[in-house]
């Protein structure tokens, strides 16, 4: 990894003060870094689709009107070389594992002091062994989540489904054939112990806590080319 990391970063967070503080702190990793900010998934998708090649994308787990994890999938597809870090005030094992299984390069709890956040971002960028930035060891005794049984592809499909996307849209967004999506759905239902889409979404919403602000997914589907 280039010593001048990040060259360009996108911070996606709807809390202005945290966003400003994080952006400012990132410039201490590279004073010449370009730091863009977005306060919603929709705004982030617009920025991701423009010409800037980001080498770091930091996404709040909970965004207004959307699960940050849904944005993660799109960010990975649009900017395949970016390091993607999920940040969240919710630091339960289920949230951390969901983010990592969805393809995040790291997870950083928002309650960390900013100096530690920067240290961890650098660790993720350089691929140091300590870059697994989930909860501390004593917190890793949380009960088994059914989400842990899902493959990364199934996690992406579940999150897309919870975001209100139809099979055809999910197939297009993830670069899969529609029958493949249906096959994954059958596996998801079986692993979650449910019989249909509605029940699966309810389970997903209970296990992927939407928190105080991101309760109703409202955004339109995003056309993306492929997923890493």
């Amino acid at each position: 990894m280039d010593q001048r990391f990040p060259g360009a970063a996108l911070v996606v967070d709807d809390h202005p003060l945290y966003c400003s503080a994080l952006s400012s702190a990132l410039t201490h990793l590279n004073p010449e870094a370009r730091i863009d900010v977005a306060s919603s998934a929709e705004e982030a998708r617009l920025l991701l689709s423009r010409d800037t090649v980001y080498d770091l994308v930091m996404i709040d787990f909970m965004l207004p009107g959307s699960l940050g994890l849904s944005l993660l999938t799109d960010a990975r597809a649009i900017q395949p070389n970016a390091r993607i870090v999920v940040i969240s005030g919710r630091e339960e094992e289920g949230v951390v594992q969901s983010a990592l299984r969805m393809g995040a390069d790291g997870f950083i709890g928002k309650s960390l002091a900013m100096a530690d956040v920067i240290d961890k971002v650098h660790a993720i960028a350089t691929g140091r062994p300590d870059a697994s930035v989930g909860p501390e060891p004593e917190q890793k005794t949380a009960k088994h989540s059914p989400l842990a049984d899902l493959s990364p592809a199934q996690m992406r499909i579940l999150v897309a489904m919870a975001d209100g996307r139809l099979n055809k849209q999910i197939a297009f967004d993830l670069g899969l054939a529609e029958p493949t999506v249906k096959s994954h759905l059958s596996a998801i239902f079986r692993k979650l112990g449910v019989n249909n889409r509605t029940q699966a979404v309810l389970v997903a919403q209970s296990l992927l806590p939407a928190g105080p602000v991101a309760t109703q997914p409202v955004e339109p589907p995003m056309r993306t080319a492929r997923v890493r």
Partner: peptide, 12 residues
Amino acid sequence: IHNLVGVAGALG
């Protein structure tokens, strides 16, 4: 309060 968790921690 959810926002406070994060920003308070980040700022020490």
